[in-house]
Design a protein around this nucleic acid. Structure first.
Lengths: 205, 205
DNA sequence: TCTATTTTGTACCGATTGGTATTATATTTA
DNA sequence: TAAATATAATACCAATCGGTACAAAATAGA
Protein backbone atom coordinates (compact mmCIF):
# COMPACT_ATOMS: atom_id res chain seq x y z
CA UNK A 1 0.00 0.00 0.00
CA UNK A 2 2.77 2.44 0.88
CA UNK A 3 4.46 4.30 -1.96
CA UNK A 4 7.62 2.50 -2.94
CA UNK A 5 9.33 5.84 -3.40
CA UNK A 6 8.72 6.81 0.26
CA UNK A 7 11.52 5.67 2.58
CA UNK A 8 10.44 3.44 5.50
CA UNK A 9 11.06 4.57 9.09
CA UNK A 10 12.45 1.23 10.16
CA UNK A 11 15.31 -0.70 8.60
CA UNK A 12 18.46 0.43 6.86
CA UNK A 13 18.00 3.96 5.54
CA UNK A 14 18.09 4.56 1.81
CA UNK A 15 21.43 5.98 0.73
CA UNK A 16 20.09 7.97 -2.25
CA UNK A 17 17.38 10.48 -3.05
CA UNK A 18 14.78 8.84 -5.33
CA UNK A 19 13.84 12.21 -6.82
CA UNK A 20 17.44 12.94 -7.79
CA UNK A 21 17.93 9.41 -9.12
CA UNK A 22 14.77 9.76 -11.20
CA UNK A 23 16.07 12.97 -12.76
CA UNK A 24 19.29 11.20 -13.64
CA UNK A 25 17.32 8.36 -15.22
CA UNK A 26 15.27 10.88 -17.19
CA UNK A 27 18.44 12.47 -18.51
CA UNK A 28 19.66 9.12 -19.86
CA UNK A 29 16.32 8.07 -21.39
CA UNK A 30 16.00 11.53 -22.94
CA UNK A 31 19.40 11.30 -24.58
CA UNK A 32 19.46 7.63 -25.59
CA UNK A 33 15.81 6.63 -25.88
CA UNK A 34 14.25 3.58 -24.29
CA UNK A 35 15.88 0.99 -26.54
CA UNK A 36 19.24 2.73 -26.49
CA UNK A 37 19.40 2.85 -22.70
CA UNK A 38 20.76 -0.17 -20.78
CA UNK A 39 20.36 -0.90 -17.09
CA UNK A 40 24.09 -0.37 -16.78
CA UNK A 41 23.64 3.14 -18.23
CA UNK A 42 20.90 3.79 -15.70
CA UNK A 43 22.60 2.45 -12.58
CA UNK A 44 25.78 4.32 -13.43
CA UNK A 45 23.97 7.64 -13.99
CA UNK A 46 21.72 7.19 -10.96
CA UNK A 47 24.59 6.14 -8.72
CA UNK A 48 22.78 3.07 -7.43
CA UNK A 49 22.91 -0.66 -8.15
CA UNK A 50 20.32 -2.81 -9.84
CA UNK A 51 18.54 -4.26 -6.77
CA UNK A 52 18.01 -0.71 -5.45
CA UNK A 53 16.65 0.36 -8.83
CA UNK A 54 14.22 -2.54 -9.02
CA UNK A 55 13.01 -2.31 -5.41
CA UNK A 56 12.44 1.43 -5.68
CA UNK A 57 11.15 1.91 -9.23
CA UNK A 58 9.90 -1.50 -10.38
CA UNK A 59 11.53 -2.34 -13.70
CA UNK A 60 12.88 -0.53 -16.77
CA UNK A 61 9.39 0.16 -18.15
CA UNK A 62 8.06 1.59 -14.90
CA UNK A 63 11.21 3.62 -14.37
CA UNK A 64 10.76 5.15 -17.82
CA UNK A 65 7.14 6.03 -17.15
CA UNK A 66 8.05 7.61 -13.80
CA UNK A 67 10.85 9.54 -15.48
CA UNK A 68 8.57 11.08 -18.11
CA UNK A 69 6.18 12.02 -15.31
CA UNK A 70 9.05 13.99 -13.80
CA UNK A 71 9.69 15.49 -17.24
CA UNK A 72 6.15 16.78 -17.56
CA UNK A 73 6.18 18.34 -14.09
CA UNK A 74 9.54 20.06 -14.36
CA UNK A 75 9.63 23.72 -13.34
CA UNK A 76 10.77 24.63 -16.87
CA UNK A 77 7.91 22.74 -18.55
CA UNK A 78 6.28 25.10 -21.04
CA UNK A 79 3.30 23.19 -22.34
CA UNK A 80 0.79 23.37 -19.50
CA UNK A 81 1.48 27.00 -18.51
CA UNK A 82 1.08 28.17 -22.12
CA UNK A 83 -2.53 26.94 -22.11
CA UNK A 84 -3.31 29.41 -19.31
CA UNK A 85 -2.60 32.45 -21.48
CA UNK A 86 -5.66 34.67 -21.98
CA UNK A 87 -5.98 34.50 -25.78
CA UNK A 88 -5.46 31.79 -28.39
CA UNK A 89 -2.72 33.80 -30.07
CA UNK A 90 -0.88 34.23 -26.80
CA UNK A 91 -1.32 30.52 -25.99
CA UNK A 92 0.18 29.42 -29.29
CA UNK A 93 2.93 32.03 -29.25
CA UNK A 94 4.02 31.13 -25.72
CA UNK A 95 3.90 27.42 -26.56
CA UNK A 96 6.02 27.70 -29.72
CA UNK A 97 8.49 30.12 -28.16
CA UNK A 98 8.69 27.86 -25.12
CA UNK A 99 9.49 24.87 -27.32
CA UNK A 100 12.12 26.91 -29.17
CA UNK A 101 13.84 27.91 -25.93
CA UNK A 102 13.49 24.57 -24.17
CA UNK A 103 14.24 22.04 -26.92
CA UNK A 104 17.58 23.63 -27.80
CA UNK A 105 18.61 24.32 -24.20
CA UNK A 106 22.12 22.92 -23.79
CA UNK A 107 21.72 22.30 -20.04
CA UNK A 108 19.90 19.06 -20.84
CA UNK A 109 19.48 16.72 -23.85
CA UNK A 110 17.98 18.36 -26.93
CA UNK A 111 14.42 17.88 -28.05
CA UNK A 112 11.63 16.22 -26.07
CA UNK A 113 11.63 12.80 -24.42
CA UNK A 114 7.89 12.40 -25.03
CA UNK A 115 8.49 12.79 -28.76
CA UNK A 116 11.78 10.96 -29.22
CA UNK A 117 11.95 8.51 -26.29
CA UNK A 118 10.44 5.55 -28.12
CA UNK A 119 9.50 6.49 -31.68
CA UNK A 120 10.73 3.59 -33.81
CA UNK A 121 11.49 0.84 -31.35
CA UNK A 122 11.60 -2.86 -30.55
CA UNK A 123 8.57 -4.91 -29.51
CA UNK A 124 9.97 -4.85 -25.97
CA UNK A 125 9.42 -1.10 -25.94
CA UNK A 126 5.87 -1.21 -27.31
CA UNK A 127 4.35 -0.47 -23.90
CA UNK A 128 6.25 2.77 -23.48
CA UNK A 129 5.80 3.59 -27.16
CA UNK A 130 2.02 3.41 -26.75
CA UNK A 131 2.26 5.47 -23.57
CA UNK A 132 4.18 8.19 -25.40
CA UNK A 133 1.74 8.22 -28.32
CA UNK A 134 -1.10 8.62 -25.83
CA UNK A 135 0.68 11.54 -24.15
CA UNK A 136 1.25 13.28 -27.46
CA UNK A 137 -2.36 12.84 -28.47
CA UNK A 138 -3.53 14.04 -25.08
CA UNK A 139 -1.38 17.15 -25.45
CA UNK A 140 -2.91 17.83 -28.84
CA UNK A 141 -6.38 17.32 -27.38
CA UNK A 142 -5.66 19.92 -24.72
CA UNK A 143 -4.63 22.40 -27.41
CA UNK A 144 -7.78 21.60 -29.38
CA UNK A 145 -9.95 22.13 -26.30
CA UNK A 146 -8.20 25.42 -25.60
CA UNK A 147 -8.73 26.59 -29.17
CA UNK A 148 -12.40 25.59 -29.04
CA UNK A 149 -12.78 27.68 -25.90
CA UNK A 150 -11.07 30.59 -27.66
CA UNK A 151 -13.48 30.16 -30.53
CA UNK A 152 -16.45 30.26 -28.13
CA UNK A 153 -14.97 33.40 -26.60
CA UNK A 154 -14.72 35.00 -30.04
CA UNK A 155 -10.96 34.87 -29.90
CA UNK A 156 -10.52 33.12 -33.26
CA UNK A 157 -13.01 32.97 -36.15
CA UNK A 158 -15.93 30.55 -35.96
CA UNK A 159 -14.89 29.25 -39.38
CA UNK A 160 -11.52 28.00 -38.12
CA UNK A 161 -11.05 24.22 -38.06
CA UNK A 162 -9.68 23.95 -34.53
CA UNK A 163 -8.91 20.22 -34.89
CA UNK A 164 -6.69 20.85 -37.88
CA UNK A 165 -5.11 23.89 -36.24
CA UNK A 166 -4.30 21.97 -33.07
CA UNK A 167 -2.78 19.19 -35.15
CA UNK A 168 -0.73 21.71 -37.07
CA UNK A 169 0.63 23.23 -33.87
CA UNK A 170 1.46 19.77 -32.56
CA UNK A 171 3.21 18.99 -35.83
CA UNK A 172 5.38 22.11 -35.64
CA UNK A 173 6.33 21.38 -32.02
CA UNK A 174 7.22 17.81 -32.89
CA UNK A 175 9.26 18.98 -35.85
CA UNK A 176 11.07 21.45 -33.63
CA UNK A 177 12.16 18.54 -31.43
CA UNK A 178 13.78 16.90 -34.45
CA UNK A 179 15.37 20.21 -35.40
CA UNK A 180 16.84 20.49 -31.91
CA UNK A 181 18.30 17.02 -32.34
CA UNK A 182 19.81 18.24 -35.62
CA UNK A 183 21.61 20.90 -33.61
CA UNK A 184 19.34 23.89 -34.32
CA UNK A 185 19.75 26.78 -31.88
CA UNK A 186 16.98 28.48 -29.90
CA UNK A 187 17.28 31.48 -32.21
CA UNK A 188 16.78 29.33 -35.29
CA UNK A 189 13.82 27.57 -33.68
CA UNK A 190 12.31 30.93 -32.77
CA UNK A 191 12.44 31.92 -36.44
CA UNK A 192 10.57 28.70 -37.20
CA UNK A 193 8.04 29.57 -34.48
CA UNK A 194 7.47 33.00 -36.03
CA UNK A 195 6.78 31.49 -39.44
CA UNK A 196 4.48 28.90 -37.88
CA UNK A 197 2.57 31.68 -36.11
CA UNK A 198 1.82 33.34 -39.43
CA UNK A 199 -0.52 30.43 -40.18
CA UNK A 200 -2.76 31.44 -37.26
CA UNK A 201 -6.16 32.79 -38.26
CA UNK A 202 -6.73 36.54 -37.85
CA UNK A 203 -8.20 37.80 -34.59
CA UNK A 204 -12.01 37.75 -34.85
CA UNK A 205 -13.77 41.09 -34.36
CA UNK B 1 37.38 -3.99 -56.09
CA UNK B 2 34.19 -5.65 -57.32
CA UNK B 3 30.92 -4.60 -55.71
CA UNK B 4 30.03 -6.99 -52.94
CA UNK B 5 26.40 -6.77 -54.01
CA UNK B 6 27.21 -8.10 -57.49
CA UNK B 7 27.08 -11.90 -57.73
CA UNK B 8 30.24 -13.61 -59.02
CA UNK B 9 30.15 -15.77 -62.14
CA UNK B 10 32.13 -18.57 -60.53
CA UNK B 11 31.31 -20.47 -57.36
CA UNK B 12 27.99 -21.36 -55.77
CA UNK B 13 25.30 -18.96 -56.93
CA UNK B 14 23.65 -16.64 -54.44
CA UNK B 15 20.24 -17.96 -53.40
CA UNK B 16 18.66 -14.56 -52.73
CA UNK B 17 18.24 -11.21 -54.46
CA UNK B 18 20.29 -8.57 -52.60
CA UNK B 19 17.92 -5.81 -53.74
CA UNK B 20 14.90 -7.61 -52.33
CA UNK B 21 16.78 -8.46 -49.11
CA UNK B 22 17.77 -4.82 -48.75
CA UNK B 23 14.16 -3.71 -49.07
CA UNK B 24 13.20 -6.18 -46.36
CA UNK B 25 15.97 -4.83 -44.12
CA UNK B 26 14.76 -1.29 -44.78
CA UNK B 27 11.25 -2.26 -43.72
CA UNK B 28 12.53 -3.55 -40.37
CA UNK B 29 14.85 -0.60 -39.65
CA UNK B 30 12.04 1.79 -40.62
CA UNK B 31 9.61 0.18 -38.20
CA UNK B 32 11.92 -0.60 -35.28
CA UNK B 33 14.78 1.89 -35.61
CA UNK B 34 18.46 0.99 -35.52
CA UNK B 35 18.66 0.19 -31.80
CA UNK B 36 15.36 -1.67 -31.80
CA UNK B 37 16.37 -3.95 -34.66
CA UNK B 38 18.36 -7.12 -33.92
CA UNK B 39 20.30 -9.25 -36.38
CA UNK B 40 17.74 -11.97 -35.74
CA UNK B 41 15.00 -9.55 -36.86
CA UNK B 42 16.98 -8.79 -39.99
CA UNK B 43 17.91 -12.33 -41.01
CA UNK B 44 14.33 -13.48 -40.48
CA UNK B 45 12.85 -10.66 -42.55
CA UNK B 46 15.50 -10.93 -45.26
CA UNK B 47 15.22 -14.72 -45.42
CA UNK B 48 18.97 -15.23 -45.15
CA UNK B 49 21.39 -16.21 -42.42
CA UNK B 50 23.99 -14.10 -40.68
CA UNK B 51 27.10 -15.11 -42.67
CA UNK B 52 25.26 -14.26 -45.91
CA UNK B 53 24.24 -10.92 -44.45
CA UNK B 54 27.77 -10.06 -43.37
CA UNK B 55 29.47 -11.20 -46.58
CA UNK B 56 26.99 -9.30 -48.74
CA UNK B 57 26.32 -6.11 -46.78
CA UNK B 58 29.21 -5.73 -44.31
CA UNK B 59 27.77 -5.30 -40.84
CA UNK B 60 24.67 -3.85 -39.18
CA UNK B 61 25.85 -0.26 -39.64
CA UNK B 62 26.63 -0.66 -43.31
CA UNK B 63 23.41 -2.54 -43.92
CA UNK B 64 21.48 0.32 -42.36
CA UNK B 65 23.26 2.89 -44.52
CA UNK B 66 22.61 0.84 -47.66
CA UNK B 67 18.96 0.46 -46.64
CA UNK B 68 18.40 4.21 -46.31
CA UNK B 69 20.05 4.66 -49.70
CA UNK B 70 17.36 2.37 -51.08
CA UNK B 71 14.80 4.45 -49.19
CA UNK B 72 15.91 7.69 -50.81
CA UNK B 73 15.83 6.19 -54.29
CA UNK B 74 12.45 4.51 -54.07
CA UNK B 75 10.05 5.14 -56.92
CA UNK B 76 7.59 6.71 -54.46
CA UNK B 77 10.16 9.11 -52.99
CA UNK B 78 8.66 12.59 -53.03
CA UNK B 79 11.45 14.84 -51.87
CA UNK B 80 13.74 15.07 -54.89
CA UNK B 81 10.99 15.27 -57.54
CA UNK B 82 9.25 18.09 -55.66
CA UNK B 83 12.34 20.26 -56.08
CA UNK B 84 11.90 20.09 -59.84
CA UNK B 85 8.57 21.92 -59.79
CA UNK B 86 8.67 25.23 -61.68
CA UNK B 87 7.79 27.63 -58.84
CA UNK B 88 8.63 27.82 -55.15
CA UNK B 89 4.97 27.52 -54.20
CA UNK B 90 4.56 24.41 -56.30
CA UNK B 91 7.79 22.95 -54.90
CA UNK B 92 6.64 23.38 -51.31
CA UNK B 93 3.09 22.29 -52.01
CA UNK B 94 4.18 19.12 -53.79
CA UNK B 95 6.67 18.37 -51.03
CA UNK B 96 4.20 18.78 -48.16
CA UNK B 97 1.41 16.93 -49.97
CA UNK B 98 3.90 14.20 -50.85
CA UNK B 99 4.89 13.83 -47.22
CA UNK B 100 1.22 13.71 -46.20
CA UNK B 101 0.46 10.93 -48.66
CA UNK B 102 3.66 8.97 -48.12
CA UNK B 103 4.19 9.14 -44.35
CA UNK B 104 0.71 7.78 -43.57
CA UNK B 105 0.71 5.17 -46.35
CA UNK B 106 -0.26 1.87 -44.73
CA UNK B 107 1.60 -0.25 -47.30
CA UNK B 108 4.83 0.38 -45.37
CA UNK B 109 5.85 1.62 -41.89
CA UNK B 110 4.60 5.09 -41.01
CA UNK B 111 6.77 8.18 -41.01
CA UNK B 112 10.29 8.45 -42.38
CA UNK B 113 13.31 6.28 -41.63
CA UNK B 114 15.69 9.22 -42.13
CA UNK B 115 13.87 11.09 -39.37
CA UNK B 116 13.05 8.31 -36.92
CA UNK B 117 15.64 5.60 -37.62
CA UNK B 118 18.15 6.72 -35.00
CA UNK B 119 16.91 9.82 -33.18
CA UNK B 120 17.61 9.14 -29.52
CA UNK B 121 19.92 6.15 -29.50
CA UNK B 122 22.80 4.29 -27.91
CA UNK B 123 26.45 5.15 -28.42
CA UNK B 124 26.68 2.09 -30.67
CA UNK B 125 24.29 3.83 -33.06
CA UNK B 126 26.10 7.16 -33.07
CA UNK B 127 27.57 6.55 -36.54
CA UNK B 128 24.18 6.07 -38.16
CA UNK B 129 22.70 8.85 -36.03
CA UNK B 130 25.25 11.30 -37.40
CA UNK B 131 24.62 10.00 -40.92
CA UNK B 132 20.89 10.64 -40.54
CA UNK B 133 21.43 14.13 -39.14
CA UNK B 134 23.65 14.89 -42.13
CA UNK B 135 20.97 13.65 -44.53
CA UNK B 136 18.31 15.78 -42.89
CA UNK B 137 20.52 18.85 -43.02
CA UNK B 138 21.43 18.15 -46.62
CA UNK B 139 17.73 17.92 -47.49
CA UNK B 140 17.11 21.25 -45.84
CA UNK B 141 20.05 22.73 -47.73
CA UNK B 142 18.54 21.57 -51.01
CA UNK B 143 15.27 23.28 -50.12
CA UNK B 144 17.15 26.46 -49.18
CA UNK B 145 19.05 26.41 -52.47
CA UNK B 146 15.81 25.91 -54.38
CA UNK B 147 14.16 28.80 -52.55
CA UNK B 148 17.17 31.04 -53.20
CA UNK B 149 16.86 30.21 -56.90
CA UNK B 150 13.15 31.04 -56.75
CA UNK B 151 14.02 34.34 -55.13
CA UNK B 152 16.51 35.12 -57.88
CA UNK B 153 13.81 34.26 -60.41
CA UNK B 154 11.41 36.67 -58.71
CA UNK B 155 9.26 33.80 -57.53
CA UNK B 156 9.20 34.82 -53.88
CA UNK B 157 9.93 38.28 -52.43
CA UNK B 158 13.53 39.44 -52.04
CA UNK B 159 12.76 40.21 -48.41
CA UNK B 160 12.03 36.57 -47.56
CA UNK B 161 14.52 34.85 -45.25
CA UNK B 162 14.99 31.69 -47.30
CA UNK B 163 17.12 30.01 -44.60
CA UNK B 164 14.36 30.36 -42.03
CA UNK B 165 11.70 29.35 -44.54
CA UNK B 166 13.60 26.20 -45.53
CA UNK B 167 14.06 25.32 -41.87
CA UNK B 168 10.36 25.85 -41.28
CA UNK B 169 9.44 23.53 -44.13
CA UNK B 170 11.87 20.92 -42.81
CA UNK B 171 10.33 21.29 -39.38
CA UNK B 172 6.80 20.72 -40.67
CA UNK B 173 7.89 17.64 -42.63
CA UNK B 174 9.69 16.22 -39.62
CA UNK B 175 6.66 16.90 -37.45
CA UNK B 176 4.44 15.15 -39.99
CA UNK B 177 6.60 12.04 -39.60
CA UNK B 178 5.85 12.04 -35.87
CA UNK B 179 2.17 12.61 -36.58
CA UNK B 180 2.16 9.60 -38.89
CA UNK B 181 3.66 7.55 -36.08
CA UNK B 182 0.83 8.79 -33.88
CA UNK B 183 -1.59 7.27 -36.36
CA UNK B 184 -2.59 10.40 -38.29
CA UNK B 185 -4.18 9.71 -41.70
CA UNK B 186 -3.10 11.17 -45.04
CA UNK B 187 -6.20 13.38 -44.97
CA UNK B 188 -5.28 14.78 -41.56
CA UNK B 189 -1.70 15.36 -42.67
CA UNK B 190 -2.95 17.13 -45.79
CA UNK B 191 -4.89 19.54 -43.58
CA UNK B 192 -1.65 20.19 -41.72
CA UNK B 193 0.11 20.76 -45.05
CA UNK B 194 -2.53 23.30 -46.09
CA UNK B 195 -2.07 25.26 -42.88
CA UNK B 196 1.70 25.10 -43.26
CA UNK B 197 1.40 26.44 -46.80
CA UNK B 198 -0.40 29.52 -45.52
CA UNK B 199 2.91 30.62 -43.99
CA UNK B 200 4.46 30.90 -47.44
CA UNK B 201 5.23 34.45 -48.56
CA UNK B 202 2.98 35.96 -51.25
CA UNK B 203 3.98 35.58 -54.88
CA UNK B 204 6.24 38.48 -55.86
CA UNK B 205 5.03 40.67 -58.77
C1' DT C 1 21.69 -5.85 23.54
C1' DC C 2 18.58 -8.37 20.80
C1' DT C 3 15.23 -8.71 17.21
C1' DA C 4 12.75 -7.18 13.29
C1' DT C 5 13.10 -4.66 9.16
C1' DT C 6 14.92 -2.57 5.13
C1' DT C 7 18.64 -1.46 1.97
C1' DT C 8 23.01 -2.49 0.42
C1' DG C 9 26.65 -4.88 -2.58
C1' DT C 10 27.98 -8.91 -4.99
C1' DA C 11 27.39 -12.55 -7.57
C1' DC C 12 24.70 -14.82 -10.44
C1' DC C 13 20.73 -16.29 -13.83
C1' DG C 14 19.16 -17.66 -18.68
C1' DA C 15 18.53 -15.26 -22.91
C1' DT C 16 20.06 -12.43 -26.44
C1' DT C 17 23.40 -9.24 -28.49
C1' DG C 18 26.57 -8.43 -32.79
C1' DG C 19 29.81 -11.06 -35.17
C1' DT C 20 32.67 -15.24 -36.95
C1' DA C 21 35.05 -19.92 -37.74
C1' DT C 22 34.15 -23.98 -40.02
C1' DT C 23 32.25 -27.17 -42.93
C1' DA C 24 29.15 -28.67 -46.49
C1' DT C 25 27.23 -27.58 -51.01
C1' DA C 26 26.65 -25.81 -55.58
C1' DT C 27 28.55 -23.82 -59.41
C1' DT C 28 32.24 -22.56 -63.31
C1' DT C 29 36.43 -23.53 -65.46
C1' DA C 30 40.06 -26.56 -66.84
C1' DT D 1 36.03 -35.58 -63.99
C1' DA D 2 38.91 -32.68 -61.04
C1' DA D 3 40.17 -28.28 -59.24
C1' DA D 4 38.96 -23.73 -57.99
C1' DT D 5 35.67 -20.66 -56.20
C1' DA D 6 31.93 -18.71 -53.76
C1' DT D 7 27.84 -19.23 -51.00
C1' DA D 8 24.95 -21.86 -47.50
C1' DA D 9 24.06 -23.66 -43.02
C1' DT D 10 25.39 -24.78 -38.51
C1' DA D 11 27.58 -24.02 -34.54
C1' DC D 12 29.92 -21.22 -31.89
C1' DC D 13 32.21 -16.85 -29.62
C1' DA D 14 32.71 -13.27 -25.77
C1' DA D 15 29.94 -9.60 -24.19
C1' DT D 16 25.88 -7.67 -22.79
C1' DC D 17 20.92 -7.80 -22.01
C1' DG D 18 17.07 -7.30 -18.24
C1' DG D 19 16.32 -9.19 -13.91
C1' DT D 20 17.06 -11.67 -9.23
C1' DA D 21 18.89 -14.61 -5.11
C1' DC D 22 21.44 -14.02 -1.22
C1' DA D 23 24.02 -12.43 2.44
C1' DA D 24 26.14 -8.39 4.77
C1' DA D 25 25.12 -3.96 6.78
C1' DA D 26 22.48 -0.29 8.93
C1' DT D 27 18.74 1.39 11.25
C1' DA D 28 14.32 1.50 14.82
C1' DG D 29 11.95 -0.37 18.48
C1' DA D 30 11.76 -3.64 22.41
Amino acid sequence: MSDSRCAASVGRPRAFDPEVALEKALEVFWRKGYDGTSLADLTEAMGINKPSLYSTFGNKDQLFLKAIEVYENRPCAFFGPALDEPTAHQVVKKMLYGAAANFADKSHPQGCVIIQGALSCSETASTVKEALIARRQEGEQRVRDRLARAQAEGDIPATTNVGALARYIGTVIQGMAIQANNGATSEELTEVADLALSAMPPIAQ
